[in-house]
Each structure stands twice: as C-alpha cells, then as structure tokens.
Design a protein around this nucleic acid. Sequence first.
DNA 1: CATAACCCTGTACCTAGGTACGGAATCAAG
DNA 2: CTTGATTCCGTACCTAGGTACAGGGTTATG
Lengths: 139, 139
Amino acid sequence: MSEQKSNPLTIGQLAKMASVSVETIRFYQRKHLIPTPPKPYGSIRRYSLEDVKRVRFIKSAQKLGFSLAEIANLLRLEDGTHCAEAKAIAESKLISIRQKIADLKTLEKILESYTSNCENKTNNTPCPIISNLFNDPFV
Amino acid sequence: MSEQKSNPLTIGQLAKMASVSVETIRFYQRKHLIPTPPKPYGSIRRYSLEDVKRVRFIKSAQKLGFSLAEIANLLRLEDGTHCAEAKAIAESKLISIRQKIADLKTLEKILESYTSNCENKTNNTPCPIISNLFNDPFV
DNA sequence: CATAACCCTGTACCTAGGTACGGAATCAAG
DNA sequence: CTTGATTCCGTACCTAGGTACAGGGTTATG
C-alpha cells in the first residue's frame, strides 16, 4: 500500500511526454538505451520523469547526428563526472561533421558545373549532365 | 558461327572492369538498373563495354549523392535528348545538398559551443556536454 | 461487472544497398 | 576427360532505426 510517487507513469504516458511512440520506447529498452523497470507481480511497469529526460536526451543527440551506438556511450557518462570522455566523443563527431560538410561542398561544385553546362548547350548536342556522368571524370 | 564482338565479356570481367563485385552486378540487374542480356541456350550471359560504362555511371552518380532510385531516373534519360529533365533532377539534388550543408553547419555550431564550455568548467561541476543534452535546448 | 483502452511479449516487417551462400550448370586448361 | 574456376539462380542475411502486428493480461470507466 505504500505510494510509488517516484514512478508514476505508464509506458504510454512516458512515450507521449517524450514525443515518441510506445514501440520506440520498447525498442530503446531492447537496445539498453533506457532501463526496463521491474514489473510488479501481476501488474504493469511504471516509469519516472527521469526516464522522460533520458528519452529526450536520446532524441536531442540524434538531432546532433549521433548514432544510437554513440548515444549509448554518452549515456554511460550520465553522471557528468567524465567530462573528458564526453568531450572526446563530441570532438570526434565534430570532425566527422566537418568532413561531411567538405564532401558535400565538393559535390555541390561538381553538380553546379554540370548543370551550368546545360546553359551553353546547343541544340542536338547530348545532355552535359548525362555525358559527364557517363564519361566518369571523378572516379 | 558469326562472331559476337559486341558482347565479349563474362559477368566476372564486367564486374572487374567496373570495380564492383559480381553480386553487385546481379543486384543492379534485379533492380533493373542494368539490363540482363539474353542467355544463349545452354550457355552463359555476355556483356558489352556499354555495360561497363553503365555500371560506372551508377557508381559516379552515387558518389554525387544520388540514390539508386534517382539514378534509375537518370538512366532513363540515357540517350541525352532529355536535357531539361536531367537538369531538373540535378538541380533538386543540388538544393537538397545545400540544405544538408546548412543543417550540418548548425550542428557544428551547437557542438562547438557545447565542447567549448568544457574549457571554462570548474572542478566538480557537471559536464556541460551531458547537461546540455539532458536539458534539451533545441528540441 | 462489462467493456474499452491500454500494456506485455515475441516476432515479423520495412528501407537502402548491398553481401553471402548452396547446389547445379558451364567453361577453360591441361 | 578431368579438374578447378566461373556462372546461374534463388534465397537468406546484414546494418540502422525503427514500425506493426497477434494474442494474451491488466486497468480504468460507467
């Protein structure tokens, strides 16, 4: 009969508060990204506001480009006492983000040059985009 | 007994010349990205140098960020007479590339600010990266 | 107490872009 | 003619990040 004030939420309420689906909660449990609270005999599992924060953490980190595997590593640092490790993870992510930006800029330049050749194209010459790709200048 | 000069290659030679695996050739055939030449009775399929160019085209376009579905559309324009359509496909890809660059730059700024807060962190304060993510400033 | 709404567990399915494999047929070399 | 390498065909498997059931049990509402 003692009140369980610390774990008041059903999985549906947790999902709604964290703006994900119930299935996503269960998926994260299977991946050990969030704990699976004990199930009282003949009853259902209950969740806390800490769990809501944890799911939101996952969604925030995903928006920053972290994979679930990387997020699992960050969550192991949850107590905040391993700042150097967290920083190392964030900085390697920063490096890969910068690399992606550079790669995309290269692609942008190539595509720009292909499409601009369409302008000075005269009638009955082949399409520069297609012929550039077929003639394979950057493999 | 007429010579089949136009289709001299086995699938293994095609794969090697296009720098992909035999399995990848078959996968592209299943996806109708490249044709499956007829199989002479009791013999094996033969491929041409045109097929090599076509596979290389696919690989080049992939490096430019096109999906196989988009590449299938480009390949339908292979004769080079549909320049306007090819240009439209390339330009919409250019727009999505620019959007990705912008998104990544936003992430870069956020991550930079998180990691730089680690510098001015005093002992026994929680890690700014973790606490920023837990406190969810950009959901 | 009836009934709807929700929860639990396990499993299957989805996209994208392939990779891997088993068993039979064919080809190339000696 | 034998042996080893390729080819063929169908099917299964892989990663990532979920989504979608089916067939139960539980809970909340009137």
